[in-house]
C-alpha cells in the first residue's frame, strides 16, 4: 500500500483529483464495513461519503509511518461512534463476557453440527443475520478481521486497543455468531 502514500503526497501538493484514486480503492472495503455495522444501505453510502470527506479534510494530519488504510478506518470507526453517541444508542458492555452466559463453550459440543443443515450460500445469509444480533463492539472487530481482512495488529491500531484484547473479542464474536447459528438449527 505504498501507493497510498504517493497518492496522498500528490493530493497534499494540490492535486485534488488524485484523491479519486483513494476513493476508488477504498469504497468497497469501507462499504463492506459500514454496511454491516449500520445495516442500512442508504445510510452506509452517506456515511462512506462523510468518511472520505473527513479524510480529505484532515489529510494533512495523516502521518506516513502509519498505514493509510488503518487511518481511514479509524476515521470511519470514530464517525460511527459519534453517530451512535448522538443517537444515544447504548454501548453494550463487554465487562460481562460471553462465556458467563454459557455462550462460549469450553469443550467441543456433542450435538449435531450447526452447519450441516446449510449450504454455503444459506450459511452466509445466516451469518449476516447473526452478525446483526451481536453487540456492535464485537461485530465491528469481527468485520474488520474477517470481512476487511485486517491483521490483529492493524485492528488494534484502528481501535486503540491491545492486540490481545482484539484477539479475544474477535474470538468472542465468532463464538457468539456460531452460537446464534446453533440456536437456529
Amino acid at each position: 500500500m505504498h501507493d497510498d502514500k504517493l497518492v496522498i503526497r500528490r493530493v497534499l501538493q494540490g492535486d485534488r483529483e488524485a484523491f479519486a484514486v483513494i476513493v476508488e480503492r477504498y469504497q468497497q472495503p469501507l462499504l463492506n464495513y459500514l454496511g454491516r455495522m449500520l445495516g442500512e444501505r442508504e445510510q452506509s453510502l452517506e456515511f462512506a461519503q462523510d468518511v472520505f470527506m473527513k479524510a480529505y479534510s484532515s489529510l494533512n494530519s495523516y502521518r506516513e509511518e502509519y498505514k493509510f488504510s488503518t487511518w481511514l478506518f479509524r476515521i470511519a470507526s470514530n464517525h460511527m461512534i459519534d453517530f451512535w453517541r448522538k443517537k444515544k444508542i447504548p454501548a453494550v458492555s463487554l465487562d460481562r463476557s460471553f462465556s458467563e452466559d454459557g455462550a462460549t463453550p469450553q469443550a467441543p459440543d456433542p450435538g449435531p453440527s450447526v452447519i450441516r443443515a446449510y449450504e454455503l450460500a444459506e450459511l452466509r445469509k445466516k451469518i449476516e443475520s447473526a452478525l446483526r444480533r451481536i453487540p456492535e463492539s464485537l461485530r465491528e472487530l469481527f468485520i474488520l478481521r474477517h470481512v476487511n481482512e485486517f491483521s490483529y495488529e492493524d485492528i488494534a491500531a484502528i481501535k486503540s486497543l491491545p492486540v490481545g484484547t482484539v484477539k479475544n473479542r474477535v474470538f468472542q464474536a465468532k463464538e457468539a455468531v456460531r452460537n446464534l447459528l446453533e440456536g437456529e438449527t
Binding site: R16, E17, F19, A20, V23, E24, Q27, Q28, L31, N32, G35, R36, R41, S44, L45, A48, Q49, F52, M53, Y56, I115, L120, L123, R124, I127, E128, F142, H146, V147, E149, K174, V177, R178, L181
Partner: peptide, 27 residues
Amino acid sequence: TLEAAWTALTPYDVPPDFASTVMRRIS
C-alpha cells in the same frame, strides 16, 4: 466451514457513480 463462510461474505454493491459523487462534494 464457518471460517470459510465468513471470510467470503458477499461484498456490498457500490454504486457506479459513488466515487464521482464524493469527488464532486470534495471539489
